[in-house]
Amino acid sequence: MADSFDPKIVAFCCKYCAYAAGDLAGSMRLSYPTNIRIIQVPCTGRVDIIHLLRAIEDGADGVYVAGCLEGECHFLTGNLKTKKKVTFVRQTLEEIGIEPERVQMFNLSSAMGPRFAEIATEMTAKISKLGPNVVEARKAA
């Protein structure tokens, strides 16, 4: 089971940092797992609680938000606001017995291509270890 598990991970990436870092990772020909489905957002502040919950509800094995370094948000505080939303979602998942580690927040700058690849690898490894999202697993069974 563990060998065949290929996690589906949704990544909400800020256009000013993580998404650009993803581009840079590509230009640098860095490889990272193909499990990541990137959604570009104009700022991580745009990501709402419901987006993260719906991803889990619809069967994503992991979700992460990748925004600017703290204090360097293009819109000043979007990343800090979403950091609190991510915390809320993690608490909610814990309350209903789902591993909060499935939802994460990362911070990086647009110059950090290697870090982008590292985050994708790190998240894929973490979710692979956790196993499939039980919501999706139930559906498949």
């Binding site: 709402d48 419901i50 919950l53 509800e57 209903i96 039980v134 919501v135 069974a141």
Partner: peptide
């Protein structure tokens, strides 16, 4: 509206988990 959506999604996840 927002809180309705969040609670609905949370309840659905919890119940899907229970099968």
């Amino acid at each position: 509206l927002k809180e309705v959506q969040v609670l609905a999604s949370t309840l659905k996840i919890a119940r899907k988990k229970e099968g």
